[in-house]
């Protein structure tokens, strides 16, 4: 009897503590942690490589230089789409940084021609699906009082570990089951017309 209680009440926190200790010492490539209190949706996907006009390295910007996801993907917190930053935003840094690198020279060329690189879409749910970034970011970041530095954990729920990628790739399925399982676990809607249009 007593033993059972020990198992139920004491053991899990102890295990959690131990695993947290282990995790904190782990190298940066470890699986991205879910934000606290969120049951992460399960499922992985081996997305194809997408040929981009300029190979944009997320790892250099996010992992090495600690630039926040929402510095570039500004609209994630206030609209349906997260948006890709305009070239002028890149140039805010790259007028000065790494100007000798061929990729940056290409970027500067685009900027001087007043064109933007034609980024290919990596994540693309079908047109009949209504999806809104702001609602999810509000729920998991602002309503949950998650420090904004940790926003990548929230993005990671649906986009995986972008910060470890040299070129963005789809690595979560983003299918109906994937969305719906998370909605069931975390209090999202189950009504068809919330997602289908």
């Amino acid at each position: 009897m007593f033993y059972k209680h020990v198992c139920k009440l004491v053991l899990p926190p102890v295990l959690m503590f131990v695993s947290m200790l282990l995790m904190s010492g782990a190298p940066a490539r470890a699986e991205l942690a879910a934000p606290p209190g969120v049951t992460p949706p399960v499922g992985t996907y081996a997305g194809a490589d997408v040929a981009q006009p300029i190979e944009f390295p997320h790892d250099i910007h996010v992992n090495v230089n600690k630039i926040n996801c929402m510095y570039c993907h500004t609209y994630a917190r206030r609209s349906k789409v997260a948006g890709i930053p305009p070239t002028s935003k890149c140039m805010g840094c790259h007028k000065m940084i790494a100007t000798d690198k061929p990729r940056i020279q290409k970027l500067t060329e685009y900027f001087e021609k007043r064109e933007s690189p034609k980024w290919k879409k990596v994540h693309d749910v079908p047109d009949f699906v209504h999806f809104s970034h702001e609602r999810h970011v509000k729920k998991f970041v602002f309503d949950a009082d998650l420090p904004v530095e940790n926003v990548e954990q929230v993005c990671g729920l649906c986009h995986g570990e972008i910060k470890a990628m040299t070129v963005a790739k789809k690595n979560k399925p983003l299918t109906m089951g994937f969305c719906q399982r998370c909605h069931e676990a975390n209090g999202g809607p189950g009504d068809c017309w919330k997602c289908h249009k």
């Binding site: 079908p126 009949f128 009504d191 068809c192 017309w193 289908h196």
Partner: peptide
């Protein structure tokens, strides 16, 4: 209170 029509279904 709407009668939904899920087109893809």
């Amino acid at each position: 209170g709407l009668n939904a029509q899920v087109y893809n279904r």
